[in-house]
Amino acid sequence: MKKPTPLPTDVDPQGFLVADAYASGVPRWRLQTSELVTPSRGIRLARANEHDLELLGRLHTAVTPRCAVSHVTAALLWSIPLPIYLEAEGASGMIHVTRRQEIGRVKRRGVIGHRAPLLARDVRVLNGVHLTSPEWTWVDLARQMGRGSLVAAGDALLARDNPLSSIDAIQEVIDRRPKVKGIRMAREILPLLRAGVDSPQESRLRVKIVDAGLPEPAVTQPIFDDHGRYMSTPDLQYKEYKIAMEYEGDHHRSDPVQWGRDIERDDRLRAKGWIVLRFSDVQMKGGWVNAERKLRDALTSRGWRRPSS
């Protein structure tokens, strides 16, 4: 085989459409060299980029007219948090692509095809990739995710900084898709979404608390002392009962400076009569019974009583 020659400057060596390469004068043999892979007909990628979802999404939506990357693939490109099993699906190299219902599913290697009544506003362009909107993507995910994970994904759309969507936008998509699989779950979960949540695990913790029959805690509300001086913004709190809850991710334990600040923060609150409860991945995965008891005992000690049914 001939020694590969450099591609023309108007052909991206990371990945390109075969039609564009031919239009630029690239000979057929050059597209068959070992440094390139063929994820699907009409597409070539540099071998090092064969699992690059953004590049794959850009090329698939370029080679197939009137379609959008969707489902798990779109969620990953929007940086919507997913459970581990869906992250693994996204890493498999398969791309979810949705076309309008009247056109028909995309049928090509490397693609999981879908049909849906997409409107122009349901498709966005992100870094050159046509993909379903965050709210449409969230509804697509409803059939594949449990309560806690779906709440975490929805909360991520309502992030404090640069939110991807809004409750009204999500509701509008739900109303337009009454028969899609998972719509009942989407309707059930929508009222549980909250803006301003800092991490998926905080969302999952809040859902566990509510599902345990305990009152819903407030999300990331600042606490001030009697003189109006800022003290802390716990992940979750019951202001009425002066109970603060913090979810400690791995970065809290691995960063000595952050760990020290956390200790000082909690000490300030306790000095003002607050109970501070800390949670980690241990409680979320296997120790929830004890964690729930700890929280219930704290609430009871501050005068909370379960409402009579």
Rank of each mutant, 00 (worst) to 15 (best):
Phe224Val: 05
Phe224Leu: 09
Asp225Ile: 06
Asp225Met: 03
Asp226Pro: 00
His227Phe: 08
His227Tyr: 12
Arg229Thr: 09
Arg229His: 08
Arg229Phe: 11
Tyr230Glu: 08
Met231Leu: 15
Ser232Ala: 15
Ser232Asp: 11
Ser232Met: 05
Ser232Ile: 04
Thr233Pro: 04
Thr233Met: 07
Pro234His: 04
Pro234Ala: 05
Asp235Thr: 02
Leu236Phe: 05
Leu236Met: 06
Leu236Gly: 01
Leu236Asp: 01
Gln237Ile: 03
Gln237Lys: 02
Tyr238Leu: 03
Tyr238Gly: 00
Tyr238Gln: 01
Tyr238Phe: 08
Lys239Ile: 03
Glu240Arg: 00
Tyr241Trp: 14
Tyr241Thr: 02
Tyr241Met: 07
Lys242Val: 01
Lys242Tyr: 04
Ile243Glu: 01
Ile243Ser: 00
Ile243Ala: 01
Ile243Gly: 01
Ile243Lys: 00
Ala244Pro: 03
Ala244Phe: 00
Met245Arg: 00
Met245Asp: 01
Met245Lys: 03
Glu246Tyr: 06
Tyr247Arg: 02
Tyr247Trp: 10
Glu248Leu: 11
Gly249Asn: 02
Gly249Trp: 06
Gly249Ile: 08
Gly249Ser: 07
Asp250Leu: 15
Asp250Arg: 06
Asp250Glu: 14
Asp250Cys: 09
His251Val: 11
His251Gly: 10
His251Trp: 10
His251Lys: 08
His252Ala: 10
Arg253Gly: 04
Arg253Asn: 05
Arg253Thr: 08
Ser254Thr: 14
Ser254Ala: 05
Ser254Gln: 11
Ser254Tyr: 07
Ser254Met: 12
Asp255Tyr: 07
Asp255Arg: 04
Asp255Leu: 10
Pro256Met: 13
Pro256Gly: 12
Val257Ser: 15
Val257Ile: 14
Gln258Ser: 04
Gln258Met: 14
Trp259His: 13
Trp259Asn: 09
Trp259Cys: 10
Gly260Thr: 07
Gly260Cys: 10
Gly260Ala: 14
Arg261Trp: 11
Arg261Tyr: 08
Arg261Met: 13
Arg261Phe: 06
Asp262Ile: 02
Ile263Ser: 09
Ile263Pro: 04
Ile263Tyr: 05
Glu264Asn: 13
Glu264Val: 15
Arg265Trp: 05
Arg265Ile: 07
Arg265Asn: 08
Arg265Met: 04
Asp266Arg: 14
Asp266Ile: 05
Asp267Ser: 13
Asp267Thr: 13
Asp267Cys: 14
Arg268Lys: 15
Arg268Met: 15
Leu269Val: 00
Arg270Gln: 07
Ala271Asp: 15
Ala271Cys: 11
Ala271Trp: 08
Ala271Ser: 14
Gly273Leu: 07
Gly273Glu: 04
Trp274Thr: 01
Trp274Asp: 00
Ile275Thr: 14
Val276Thr: 10
Val276Pro: 01
Val276His: 03
Leu277His: 03
Arg278Glu: 08
Arg278Trp: 02
Arg278Asp: 02
Arg278Gly: 00
Arg278Phe: 02
Phe279Tyr: 15
Phe279Thr: 11
Phe279Arg: 05
Ser280Asn: 11
Ser280Lys: 04
Asp281Ser: 15
Asp281Thr: 07
Asp281Lys: 12
Gln283Pro: 04
Gln283Leu: 03
Gln283Ser: 07
